[in-house]
Each structure stands twice: as C-alpha cells, then as structure tokens.
C-alpha cells in the first residue's frame, strides 16, 4: 500500500493550516477597504434613524470588535463551514458559492476532458518524431497554446461562432428549460438533463458548453503537449524500453504501455496543479460567454463592496487548490509504485 493514513492526516492538517493563513490574509486585506460595510448591510439608511440602524448592523456583522478578535471569530466560523452573510445577496456566502461552483466546475471538467487527452496525444506524437520538424512545430504549438490569453481566445471563439450564426450564450435556453420542465438538481446541467432524460436541454447545454470549454482547454492542451513530449521522450531512452524493442514488442505497445505509462504520474501531478489554477481561467471565460458561475460573483463582490463574498471567494479558490493538489498527489501515489506517501 503506497498510501499511508499517517500521510493523509498530515496532509489534511497542513492544508487546514494553509487555509488559516489564507483566511487571515484575506480578511485583514479586505477589511481595510474604504466604505463602511455596516452602512450597506443596513441598506444605506438616511434620515433620523440612520445612525442607530448602522450601529446595529455593525454589531450584527461583528465589526465593532477589535481586528484580532474579528479575525479569530471569522476563523472559527470558516472552520465550521460558515462564511458569513453576503451583503450583495443577503444569503449565506457558503450557499451562494456552492450554488455557483457547479457551473464553473462543469466548464472546467469539460475543458480538461478535452485538453488533457488531446495534449497528451499530441505530445506522444511529437516524442515519437523527436528532432524532426513535426516535433518542432508541435512543441511551438504547445507553447503558443499555453501563451494565449484565455479571455482573448474566448472572445475570438465567440466572435467566430457568432458570425457563423451560432451565438453560444449562457448555459441553457430559458425557453427550452421552461418548456421541458427542466430543473437544476446538482447544478451540473449536463448531468441534470441526463437524470431527467431531457435530451433537448442536454444537447442545448452541451452546445453552449463546448465553445467556452475549448477556450479554457487551450492551456491544459499546451501544457500536456509539452509535458508528455518531454516525459515520453525521456522514457523512450530508458534501458527497459530499449530491451522491449529488442524483444520485438510492437512499437505502439512500447510507446503506450511502457513509455506513456512511465510518464503518467508526472502528467497527473502537473495537470492537477494546472487544474486548480484553471479555475480562474474558467471564471474569466464565463464572463466572456455570459454564463452564470463564480466569475459573476467576482464582479458582484466589487460592485457591492461585498467583503464577505470576496473573502469567501478567496477561501474557496484556495481550498480548491489545496484539495486538488492533495488529490493529485494521492492519484500519483496510486499510479506510480515508486512514490510512497
């Protein structure tokens, strides 16, 4: 068993410790922002009763305490899964975040389901022709894909599809959803449509998901291309591969069964980290394609000076990063017998 309980516990504790740091940092930075959240929470009161109302709101939000106590209180809340109340939405931040997380994750999963296999495939192709001009071209392509501004690529995809008469906008057609009685259950619309055996909504949602997913997929495609190219090319130089070739094992089998197998753990590790960071790309592309999701919350947090929502977003993004990285390490350990955690 390459994976020990001891490691998992340690890893979890470490993640919690890092999360505490994130919470303290974000709370302290954002609480410094000008403008009084208590005034907003009280609903911008005016007239004679205003002062009292603001005072009450300040108490309600816990803003009357000294900073270190506020941070401590907030930490306690966060560790129990409570992120406070959003000023913009007047709902628990946790609920607002989880409701929107599914939309963003759906996009992210779609992008990685496209990008990682495609990139790895191209990478292996390049490794098999290493040194040649195809290899050089593919490697440059990989660099270019990883160097493309995602928001700009999203706009370009959008504009091209648009002039082709296909405006990919939003997540699902409102009219269609209403007409077929579509209900959001998990928030992953493709899954929801499948569960309800709602084919029109499924295909509609899929058609709207693919274009933004392509834009988000550029980075993982480029990354996996370069990485699998390097790892597979390395592996192909190993003695055991040479031996296998000498034994007359088929070329296809050598590449996929030995070389790619050896590259897989490294690929999983790097793709995992990239997956965590691509959450941000997905948020930006959502904005470009007018989809609901975490991206919109970013703007709401600014528009309403909603510091609770902003802290919530920071904590969520960091927690996502930590969770994905832990999972990637675990997955790597499960695949790679050399790694022991």
């Amino acid at each position: 068993m390459p994976l020990s309980l001891n490691y998992l516990v340690k890893r979890l504790l470490w993640s919690v410790a890092v999360l505490v740091g994130v919470v303290v940092f974000s709370y302290v930075v954002i609480i410094l922002s000008p403008g009084d959240p208590a005034v907003k929470w009280a609903g911008n009161p005016r007239g004679p009763g205003a002062a009292k109302a603001v005072e009450e709101a300040r108490r309600e939000l816990g803003l009357d305490l000294p900073l270190h106590l506020q941070v401590l209180n907030f930490l306690k809340m966060v560790l129990t899964g409570d992120l406070g109340y959003s000023i913009a939405y007047r709902q628990p931040v946790f609920a607002v975040l989880t409701r929107n997380l599914a939309a963003t994750l759906e996009l992210l999963f779609a992008a990685y389901l496209i990008g990682v296999p495609l990139g790895s495939l191209l990478g292996v192709a390049a490794a098999m022709r290493r040194g040649g001009s195809v290899d050089g071209l593919l490697q440059t392509l990989g660099l270019a894909l990883a160097s493309t501004p995602t928001f700009w690529l999203g706009m370009a995809v959008f504009a091209v599809l648009f002039s082709a008469g296909f405006p990919a906008y939003g997540r699902v057609s409102t009219g269609l959803a209403l007409a077929t009685g579509f209900q959001a259950i998990t928030g992953f619309y493709l899954l929801d449509a499948l569960l309800q055996l709602n084919a029109p909504v499924f295909f509609d949602a899929l058609a709207r998901l693919l274009p933004p997913a392509l834009a988000v997929a550029a980075y993982p495609t480029g990354l996996c291309l370069r990485l699998s190219r390097a790892l597979v090319a390395d592996a192909l130089l190993e003695e055991y591969v040479r031996a296998a070739v000498a034994w007359g094992v088929k070329r296809r089998v050598v590449v996929w069964k030995y070389a790619f197998r050896a590259a897989l753990p490294g690929l999983v590790q790097v793709a995992g980290t990239a997956f965590a960071y691509s959450l941000i790309d997905a948020m930006v592309v959502e904005y470009v394609f007018g989809r609901e999701g975490l991206g919109r919350l970013l703007f709401d947090a600014i528009a309403f000076s909603d510091f609770k929502l902003a802290v919530g977003l920071l904590v969520l993004v960091a927690a996502f990063y930590l969770a994905v990285n832990t999972l990637a390490d675990v997955a790597q350990a499960l695949i790679d017998p050399r790694v022991r955690l």
Partner: peptide, 22 residues
C-alpha cells in the same frame, strides 16, 4: 402568462441573448 426577468448585467450579454432568441 409568464414573465421571466433575467438579470443580465452585461450589455453584450443582452445583445447576444436577443440574437440567440433567448
């Protein structure tokens, strides 16, 4: 019979939505 008020903060969004028949 039914009025749906969609919150679409981005003007571009609204433009696209019109063209998409949304």
């Amino acid at each position: 019979d039914v009025v749906v008020i969609k919150i679409r903060p981005d003007p571009l969004d609204q433009y696209n939505g019109l063209l998409a028949g949304e």
